[in-house]
């Protein structure tokens, strides 16, 4: 395959994946939240309402695209782009299987975090440019809280990098192959040392994707719809598509870092080689399980206050993450080698 063609194939398949994910996740979210609230969710368009989101896409496409009078016109258009492009790029480094990935960047993990950290700039711009006080407040809150939780998020991935010895997401998956005592998977989550780290990762990633206990930026009962209040039609659609897509990417990242990516140790490697769709299927199933877990949390807990949120991030999670890094280092370099009688200085 020529290089140009390869890039085109990647572009088309990832945009297709992103759009399908968006459409499917919106339906799934409504159903999951519906059933958590003991109601049915969408039921009318198609059997069990499965065509509801398609209907919504068509509606968004044919809505009038309004730019409010007080808006900064250029930035108002630029903001959805700055929100959308990074979340589209975040798919680049995800390993769906050994070979099925857009790129095998050596710095895949850092790359993903880096592009995702551009999203708050877009959200801040969206709030600023719509010329709406609620929008501006929402944008500022969102930026403040996402930067507060980016540090613990980055720190909580560090122990995994220390144990795996690479930031290439494919390499991190490879480091989790095999089993302990031939039963327990060698996923990082089965290492008790990683449990507190994983908890920090879960909390920080919920905030990074604006999920409800932490959705201060669009708290509908306080801020109308926050940074998105003045967006309509497809500009609104793109911002929300990117939000759902970020949820997917975060969950996929969690699966890759802690749950062995596309690996299931009880399935022999020869099966993976024989059935090429097995690995991506396992990866998608794990990722969607993670997403449903996020929504379970979303449907269960009430929203926290912004000062509580900032305190949790700066005064609890960051110190805890630092302690976990040192602890992982000490156990891995001193305690385990001491038992084995071979400390390397």
């Amino acid at each position: 395959m020529s290089p140009t063609l390869a890039v085109v194939v990647k572009l088309v398949s990832i945009i297709a994946l992103m759009l399908t994910n968006g459409v499917f996740m919106i339906y799934l979210l409504r159903k999951v939240l519906g059933h958590l609230h003991i109601r049915l969710g969408p039921m009318h368009v198609g059997p069990h309402g499965i065509l509801q989101t398609m209907n919504d896409v068509i509606k968004l496409l044919t809505k009038e695209d309004l730019t409010p009078r007080l808006a900064d016109k250029a930035l108002f258009f630029l903001a959805p782009m700055i929100v959308f492009v990074p979340s589209f790029m975040a798919y680049l480094a995800l390993p769906f299987s050994d070979t099925l990935k857009a790129t095998s960047l050596e710095t895949g993990l850092l790359f993903t975090f880096a592009v995702l950290s551009v999203v708050p700039i877009g959200i801040l711009l969206a709030g600023w440019s719509s010329g709406n006080k609620w929008g501006l407040l929402g944008g500022m809150r969102s930026a403040a809280m996402q930067i507060a939780y980016e540090v613990p998020l980055l720190l909580s991935a560090l122990p995994v990098v220390m144990l795996a010895g690479t930031t290439d997401l494919g390499g991190i998956v490879d480091a989790q192959a095999g089993t302990w005592l031939s039963v327990i998977p060698r996923w990082f989550i089965t290492n008790p040392l990683i449990w507190p780290t994983f908890l920090i990762f879960v909390i920080a990633s919920l905030i990074e994707v604006n999920q409800t206990p932490f959705d201060m930026s669009e708290a509908e009962s306080e801020l109308v719809a926050g940074f998105g209040a003045d967006y309509s039609a497809m500009k609104f659609g793109l911002i929300y598509l990117s939000e759902f897509s970020n949820t997917f990417v975060m969950s996929a990242l969690g699966v890759t870092l802690f749950f062995g990516g596309w690996l299931v140790p009880w399935i022999p490697m020869s099966w993976y080689e024989a059935v090429p769709v097995l690995a991506p299927t396992v990866f998608m199933l794990k990722t969607y399980l993670g997403i449903v877990l996020m929504w379970w949390i979303r449907g269960t807990y009430p929203r926290v206050r912004i000062d509580q949120l900032m305190d949790l991030g700066w005064k609890r999670l960051i110190p805890a993450a630092l302690v976990m890094i040192v602890l992982t280092g000490v156990v891995d370099k001193l305690i385990v080698p001491l038992f084995n009688g071979a400390v390397s200085w």
Binding site: P3, V7, L11, F88, M89, L92, T103, F111
Partner: peptide, 10 residues
């Protein structure tokens, strides 16, 4: 190259 293409395409 793919990273660059993704920015433009997005």
């Amino acid at each position: 190259l793919a990273v660059g293409a993704f920015v433009l395409f997005g």
